[in-house]
Write a protein that binds this DNA or RNA. Structure first.
Length: 104
DNA sequence: TGCCTGACATCGG
DNA sequence: GCCGATGCCAGGC
């Protein structure tokens, strides 16, 4: 827990790291908590720059429709879905998560 | 320096 | 409730 002034990405990563297991947050939600209400897309870029072995739970971040934004068929997409199901977050038949119950 | 793109959100049909 | 179009902000070329 450093208290130096974090960059944009660092602030985003800090918020994402705070998402509890078994819960998910939307890009817009994370952006807002980071102090950048209209920068949902920035969140995506920040996550995109993360290494595969990061300890940051990036998989707990989904779009406003409760759906994974990554292209279906990509390895990252599958990894995200698998991790969420492992944490107890179920996907509906249409491939979406019930944010009403699992949103942070 | 300036245009194009993107792990999104929101509005209207 | 899903789909398409438009708006925002930063990075990359």
């Amino acid at each position: 827990m450093t208290d130096y002034e974090p960059g944009t990405n660092h602030r985003i990563w800090r918020i994402v790291s705070a998402i509890p297991e078994g819960k998910v947050a939307t890009y817009g939600s994370v952006a807002q908590r980071a102090g950048m209400a209209r920068a949902a897309r920035r969140v995506g870029m920040a996550l995109r720059g993360l290494p595969k072995n990061t300890r940051i739970p990036w998989h707990r971040v989904v779009n406003a429709r409760g759906r994974i934004s990554l292209p279906e068929g990509s390895e990252s997409h599958y990894t995200q879905r698998y991790r969420l199901e492992t944490e107890g977050i179920p996907f509906r038949t249409n491939g979406t998560i019930d944010l009403r119950l699992y949103s942070w």
